[in-house]
Measured scan of single mutants.
Amino acid sequence: MISLIAALAVDRVIGMENAMPWNLPADLAWFKRNTLNKPVIMGRHTWESIGRPLPGRKNIILSSQPGTDDRVTWVKSVDEAIAACGDVPEIMVIGGGRVYEQFLPKAQKLYLTHIDAEVEGDTHFPDYEPDDWESVFSEFHDADAQNSHSYCFEILERR
């Protein structure tokens, strides 16, 4: 099963200049909980913004210009990325925008964090048809001392 995991502000903004323009430790914990011990696929820009392999996960970098870091697996196509994951129950696609666009048609599940923030962004989550998805989990949280904005975790499964 292919799943996408993303944090989205208003207007589906997911990033600005290779960074997330908010401070939500709870979302980072949600991300870790849902990706640990699963292969993660990301684009080169996302890889560069993280700066290191995510521990406890097979890191697969999709790029037309593969790098030389041998701590991760470099691939040039969506099919190659899927094959590099091996026989696993769930593959997690973690961004960025172009990689989400490439995998959305193949995805069966979306793990979304909806952030109540209007922020400037240069990267967006692809538009998706809500009628194609069923919400199977939703959990709202107010902003607090650690988390700069209110947010809602949601899991959607393709109908």
Rank of each mutant, 00 (worst) to 15 (best):
I41R: 02
H149I: 02
S150P: 05
G67E: 15
R33I: 13
S49W: 00
A9Y: 02
Q146T: 08
E120P: 04
T68A: 15
H45E: 05
H149G: 03
S135N: 14
E48G: 15
G97K: 04
W47Q: 11
R98N: 08
P105H: 12
R12E: 15
Q108K: 09
P105V: 07
A19S: 08
A143D: 08
S135M: 11
V78M: 15
R12W: 08
S63T: 15
Y151I: 10
K32W: 02
E129W: 10
E118Y: 07
N18E: 07
P39K: 04
I60P: 04
G97F: 03
V88W: 11
T123H: 03
I41T: 02
P126V: 11
Y151P: 01
S3K: 02
P126Y: 04
I60T: 04
V40F: 09
E48P: 03
D131F: 07
V119N: 12
R44E: 04
Y111T: 00
L24A: 15
P53V: 10
D79C: 09
I2T: 01
C152S: 14
A83W: 10
P55D: 14
D131K: 06
R159K: 10
V99L: 10
G121M: 00
P66N: 11
M20T: 01
S148V: 00
P66V: 13
T73A: 11
G86C: 07
S77Q: 14
W22L: 00
L112A: 02
N37E: 14
G56P: 00
R57G: 01
R44P: 01
R158D: 01
D69N: 07
V40G: 01
P39Y: 10
I60H: 03
L62K: 00
I115P: 03
A83Q: 09
I91P: 02
L112C: 05
R44W: 03
G67I: 14
K109T: 07
K76F: 14
I155W: 02
H124E: 05
F137H: 10
E129F: 10
W47F: 15
D122C: 01
P66I: 13
S49I: 03
L24R: 00
S63G: 13
V72P: 09
E101C: 06
S135V: 09
G56Y: 07
K106I: 15
K76H: 11
V88D: 11
L156I: 12
V13Y: 01
V40Q: 05
H141P: 03
T35C: 06
S148K: 00
E134C: 11
K76Y: 12
D122V: 00
E90Q: 04
N37R: 10
K106A: 09
E157L: 06
M16F: 00
R12V: 06
M16Y: 01
P66G: 14
G56M: 08
W47L: 15
L156K: 12
